[in-house]
Simulated scan of single mutants.
Amino acid sequence: MAEWVQNLMDSMGYLGILLLMVIENVFPPIPSELIMPSAGFAASRGDMNLALVVLMGTLGSVLGTLPLYYLGRAFGEERLVAWADKYGKWLTLSGKDIRKADDWFDRHGTKAVLFGRMVPGIRSLLSLPAGMSEMPLPKFLIYSAIGSAMWASVLAGAGYMLGENYDKVEHYVAPVSKIVLGVLIVAAAVWFMRRKRSQSAGS
């Protein structure tokens, strides 16, 4: 995949970075941890400008958030609440839980979007709850852009400094993303177990 990413950037230049980052947000298996360090390496060779690399990476990342954001808007809180009330018992999930989660996102959504854009594994998925909670698009784009710019800067800068060893960035970041996903899975499992215990105690 690294060779394909490099070839696309070599042939399309800055547009290739933008396109790859859009795709990365819609299809997470194409990691930004590979795209941006590769572009940073190209900048270290003098083939690209580092500031433009970060700019195009940020723009592509922000544009890539829009499909899932609009999918969340289209699905909406009310549809999700109705679905949870009808089928959620299998997951110990109710419409009330969905509304609580939506209220939480209304209060903390800006921080979630800002910092979540720098967390591998969940950075793309945050667009869905942002859309479902009807976070205003301008606010969503601003915080997505800030978070994405910081993430793109770190990755491109690492690739710039590491030079030909830019591919090591992905190896450094991969364990972090696995830890984050593991923590989220454990947290979800604990929440479900507590829900079941409280329901059993109440019945």
Rank of each mutant, 00 (worst) to 15 (best):
W83L: 14
L114I: 10
L125Q: 14
A74G: 12
G76A: 04
K86H: 13
G72M: 01
V113D: 01
D102T: 15
P129M: 03
L91C: 11
F115T: 04
W104C: 00
P120Q: 12
A84L: 05
G121P: 05
S124E: 02
Y69H: 09
A112F: 07
R79V: 00
L114Q: 09
D102S: 15
S94M: 08
E78L: 06
Y69C: 06
P120R: 05
V119C: 10
G121E: 04
G76Y: 04
D85T: 06
S94D: 13
D103Q: 14
P129Q: 05
S124I: 00
F75L: 15
H108C: 07
L80G: 01
A74D: 09
Y69R: 04
G95I: 11
R117F: 03
F75E: 04
A82V: 11
G109V: 07
F115E: 01
L128M: 13
F105N: 04
G109N: 09
E78C: 01
L128A: 13
L93C: 11
R123Q: 09
R99P: 10
Y70S: 03
S127D: 11
D103C: 01
L80Y: 04
L114V: 06
M118N: 02
G72H: 03
S124T: 12
G109T: 12
Y70P: 06
H108P: 02
R117C: 10
L125G: 01
L91E: 01
D85P: 07
G95W: 04
D85W: 10
P129C: 02
R123Y: 01
L128I: 15
R123W: 00
G88F: 07
P120S: 08
W90D: 11
I98Y: 02
K89T: 08
E77I: 05
I122F: 11
K89G: 12
L128Y: 08
Y69P: 09
I98K: 01
D102L: 15
T92E: 11
S94W: 07
R117H: 05
F75M: 12
V113P: 05
K96T: 14
G72F: 01
K96V: 14
A74R: 15
L91P: 03
L93G: 07
L125I: 10
V113T: 12
D97E: 13
V81K: 10
G121A: 04
H108T: 06
L128C: 07
K89Y: 04
V119S: 07
W83T: 04
W104I: 08
D97Y: 07
D103V: 08
R99H: 10
V119R: 02
Y87V: 14
L125C: 04
Y70N: 09
F115W: 14
V81W: 01
W83K: 14
